[in-house]
């Protein structure tokens, strides 16, 4: 655990010496494509997303979760909507709704599953907060439903310009009704340069997390 924390701090400091900020919006600019992935011991989540307009996008998603019910894998298309955006001169706030319907792999067959997600965020160039609530509904047994919450707060140690490496220091709180470690706190570092974003961190128990995103 100490080693991972030191690694995170070291990478963070090395990033600062170059100079560094980011957001993980499920809807980007009209006509864009995004690859987004979030990975930890309990989870591997991949999304290939096409934004048709700046208001809605369609994702192909695969999700693996290590839960107290065992490892569960989900495959689904997902629609993402920007419900509301507040553009101010020095800040932006957003509300997104995500709806998906697909299958959970059970004994080589797919069982109906639906996903409902709500994302709320506010960011300036210096500060960032977000909250995400996601419900994965199993149509075979209500006891298998998964409820996940994520809260993040971050700050940028310095203000980077458009073509500079951006960095953020983020504290992430995760809660799930189906994961043994029901509340997880993960300090993370976010780096991005132009259209590529990378996040990494380790929780209080030493579980590492790696997220990656690219827009094109």
């Amino acid at each position: 655990m100490t080693t991972k924390f030191l690694l995170v701090i070291g990478l963070y400091l090395s990033a600062i010496t170059y100079s560094p900020k980011l957001m993980a919006h499920p809807v980007a600019f009209a006509g864009s494509y995004s690859i987004m992935t979030w990975n930890s011991k309990e989870m591997s989540d991949w999304m290939l997303t096409h934004s048709f307009t700046s208001r809605y996008s369609l994702s192909a998603r695969t999700l693996r979760l290590n839960t107290e019910d065992g490892e569960r894998k989900f495959y689904m298309p997902q629609l993402n909507f920007l419900l509301k955006r507040w553009n101010e001169l020095s800040s932006q706030a957003n509300v997104y709704l995500s709806l998906g319907h697909g299958g959970e792999k059970v004994n080589n067959s797919l069982k109906d599953t639906s996903v409902l997600g709500l994302d709320v965020d506010w960011e300036s160039r210096k500060y960032y907060v977000s909250f995400k609530e996601e419900v994965i509904l199993s149509h075979r047994n209500n006891d298998l439903n998964i409820y996940q919450s994520k809260f993040r707060a971050g700050f940028a140690p310095y203000l980077a310009e458009f073509n500079e490496l951006n960095s953020w220091f983020i504290l992430q709180f995760d809660h799930s009704n189906k994961v043994k470690e029901s509340i997880k706190i993960t300090p993370m570092i976010r780096l991005f340069y132009q259209n590529v974003l990378l996040e990494f961190g380790a929780s209080q128990k030493g579980d590492s997390q790696l997220n990656f995103m690219v827009h094109f």
Partner: peptide
């Protein structure tokens, strides 16, 4: 152009592209 909501370079990529 003075733009509202342009707070993140990662998100601003679309402006340049468009």
């Amino acid at each position: 152009i003075t733009v509202k909501g342009m707070v993140c370079s990662f998100c601003s990529q679309g402006i340049t592209k468009k």
